[in-house]
């Protein structure tokens, strides 16, 4: 019953959609540990910075954006003007503009509502997993329905785990000591996630430059350093790519 409501009536398309959706869930599964650790940390941080449990839950359910939430919290706690809080959230989320541009070629044929829905669920992990997989495949003309359902599977995993772990952090908050180093678990999970993606000289160049620039620009206000680092990294990767291409032709 639920399956029919979710994947459609026609057995053949429903089968294809379901297997693409499950494939997405399978791909995202290992990364969910990182998200769970992060969600827990964010949940605890929200109640510890003075939000009520309901405000914290609302923030997590509506925004679904860990780094923007974490950036806004100290400002809310310090009674900063509302426009400063909003500006901070906007700047911290600037990398999502790059992500939405990256996703566009794969979802361009979908109706507006679906494009917006898929955009809403996009985060660092879902974007990275999906695009790093698709960019090694042929151009996105065919199988766009499969791509959509694959992405939906990834996003189901990330959203659900994020909300459950955030809620756990919110309601158990006080009982979790800060010395557990949960935030480091999330970083290690990201390390495991990104390493297989760093394949080939252009990706290596991009990773190196993004790392160095991110550290150098870490003191930039509003986490702008992150955006600068991403742009610098992409530029370096493209430069390396062009250079390799020229060398190969000679």
């Amino acid at each position: 019953m639920i399956g029919r409501a979710l994947f459609g009536r026609h057995p053949h398309t429903a089968q294809a959609r379901r297997s693409a959706w499950l494939d997405g869930l399978r791909v995202v599964a290992p990364a969910l540990i990182a998200l769970a650790a992060w969600g827990l940390v964010t949940g605890v941080a929200m109640v510890k910075s003075g939000l009520t449990q309901w405000q914290a839950l609302g923030m997590s359910m509506l925004m679904f954006a860990g780094s923007a939430q974490l950036a806004a919290l100290p400002l809310i706690a310090a009674d900063a003007p509302v426009w400063v809080v909003l500006l901070t959230a906007a700047v911290v989320n600037l990398r999502f503009v790059i992500f939405s541009a990256g996703l566009y070629p794969y979802f361009r044929d979908l109706p507006l509502g679906k494009r917006m829905a898929l955009g809403y669920f996009t985060g660092d992990v879902s974007f990275a997993l999906a695009v790093s997989r698709w960019s090694t495949q042929s151009p996105p003309q065919q199988g766009s329905s499969e791509r959509t359902w694959f992405y939906a599977g990834i996003c189901c995993g990330t959203w659900t785990v994020w909300q459950i772990s955030s809620a756990a952090g919110i309601f158990l908050g006080g009982g979790i000591p800060g010395t557990w180093g949960l935030d480091f678990v999330a970083i290690l999970a990201l390390v495991a996630l990104v390493l297989p993606m760093i394949a080939g000289p252009p990706a290596i160049a991009g990773a190196l430059v993004a790392s160095v620039v991110a550290v150098l620009a870490a003191a930039t206000p509003l986490k702008l350093g992150l955006v600068i680092a991403v742009i610098a990294g992409i530029s370096a990767a493209v430069a390396a790519d062009i250079l390799l291409e020229r060398l190969r032709r000679q």
Partner: peptide, 26 residues
């Protein structure tokens, strides 16, 4: 530009990780 964006995942993730591992107190 579309072609270049395929490097965005690697760069975004490493930019998140690097300051956590390579710096202490800024």
């Amino acid at each position: 530009v579309q072609h270049a964006l395929r490097f965005a995942p690697v760069c975004a993730l490493t930019a998140l990780i690097a300051p956590e591992l390579l710096t202490e107190q800024g």
